[in-house]
Each structure stands twice: as structure tokens, then as C-alpha cells.
Computed example of a mutant assay.
Amino acid sequence: MRPTDQITVREAYAAMHRYLERLYELAGADELGGLLGSMSLLPDGQTADPTAWTDWIQAVEEIRAGRGNLQLELEPGTDD
């Protein structure tokens, strides 16, 4: 993607959904299926699980505010 290319928050959500859908088609993981179901849009445009959209918007706002890892590096886990 070129730096001048822009998509809307809704288009980005749809792209993320499609990406996860492809992973689900390859792996068939139940967790992905559940996530996709909650992210799906209802006829009124709302997500099946209202918190899915709220969580998405929160993530977008965090990135826009510079509180995210744009390199998409995994953070080391902690051992409890």
C-alpha cells in the first residue's frame, strides 16, 4: 500500500474481517469462527456483538494517538 492510499475505518474493518475469514478457511479454527461471527454485520449495520465494533474503534483510536506498535512486533510474554 502506498502512503497516499487511504481507506475508511469501516473498510479497514471489512478488510480485517476478510483476512480472518481466509485464515478460518485455511485452518478451520473454532476460535476464529467465533470471532468472525461476533464481528459479522447485521442488516441494520451493527455488529452481531456490539463490543466488537467498540473494541475496533478503541484500537483505531489507540493507533491514531501513537499508542500502538506500528512495526507489529510481538511483545515478549510474561511468565506467571
Rank of each mutant, 00 (worst) to 15 (best):
S40Y: 03
M16P: 00
I7V: 15
L35F: 02
Q46C: 07
E31C: 06
G45K: 01
A12V: 02
R67K: 13
P76R: 15
T54K: 13
P76Q: 12
A65H: 03
A15N: 15
E11V: 05
A59F: 07
G77L: 15
S40G: 03
A59I: 06
T47R: 03
S38T: 05
T4F: 14
M1L: 11
E21K: 09
L23T: 02
P76K: 11
D80F: 10
L74E: 14
R2V: 07
E75V: 12
D79Y: 10
P76I: 05
D55V: 05
L72E: 09
L35N: 00
A59Y: 03
D44F: 01
H17E: 10
G45H: 02
N69M: 01
Y19R: 15
Q6R: 15
L70Y: 10
H17N: 06
R67M: 08
G45S: 06
A15V: 10
G77W: 07
A14C: 09
A48S: 06
G77N: 11
Y24C: 07
T78S: 14
T47F: 02
R22S: 11
M39K: 02
L41N: 04
G68N: 07
N69K: 01
E25W: 09
R67D: 05
E25S: 08
I57H: 06
D55L: 08
E61A: 10
L32K: 02
R67H: 13
H17A: 06
L70P: 06
A14I: 08
L20G: 03
R67T: 06
